[in-house]
């Protein structure tokens, strides 16, 4: 559904810009296409779900909807955040269900030209490579594009397999 992110389409969309919501996870800058982001919220009173996959932080109530919270640090195989005080979450819709990606913090919204986008480096940790749709070369740092469908899709399939 987001063909403009597929590498083979890169050339055609050289002049196209996409807006990304930038987020930080363990110091790394990530970007999410803004059209996939429904909310940015502070995850509060997350209810643990025993026996669930480790990446699932729990479930929470977001304005009357039950949202499944995904701990992105665990999803990416990172150490948990030391001070859990001011975490943020990105609200995502996936297959008509609501999910919240728990991250460290949210940055600004960037308009990025497709020309600065590159494919995922082949030597990237597979847990990252699996969920990355590309990398943007920014002036100061690199921004990894998060492929939301793969972040969640893989988890749904593994849960069914389990």
């Amino acid at each position: 559904m987001r063909n403009h992110l597929a590498p083979e389409q890169e050339d055609e969309s050289v002049n196209e810009t996409i807006q990304y919501v930038t987020i930080f996870i363990s110091g790394q800058l990530f970007g999410l296409p803004i059209n996939r982001v429904h909310d940015v919220f502070v995850p509060e009173s997350v209810t643990r779900v025993p026996l669930s996959q480790v990446e699932i932080a729990g479930v929470l109530n977001l304005r009357g909807r039950i949202v499944t919270a995904i701990d992105m640090r665990k999803r990416l195989g990172l150490e948990p955040l030391k001070q859990q005080g001011n975490m943020m979450a990105i609200g995502i819709e996936f297959k008509e269900e609501s999910y919240g990606l728990i991250i460290d913090s949210v940055g600004e919204v960037l308009d990025l030209n497709e020309s600065s986008r590159e494919a995922v480096p082949s030597n990237l940790d597979h847990r990252w490579a699996d969920v990355a749709a590309g990398v943007h070369r920014l002036e100061k740092e690199l921004m990894v594009i998060l492929d939301v469908d793969r972040v969640l899709g893989d988890m749904v399939t593994t849960s069914v397999a389990a």
């Binding site: 009173s45 209810t47 479930v59 039950i66």
Partner: peptide
Amino acid sequence: ATMLRHLSMFSGNTILGDGSVIM
């Protein structure tokens, strides 16, 4: 959620009066 549906220990979840989610 689909991701949690395989857990046979729970039949569903709900939002309580205090706004928190309970299994």
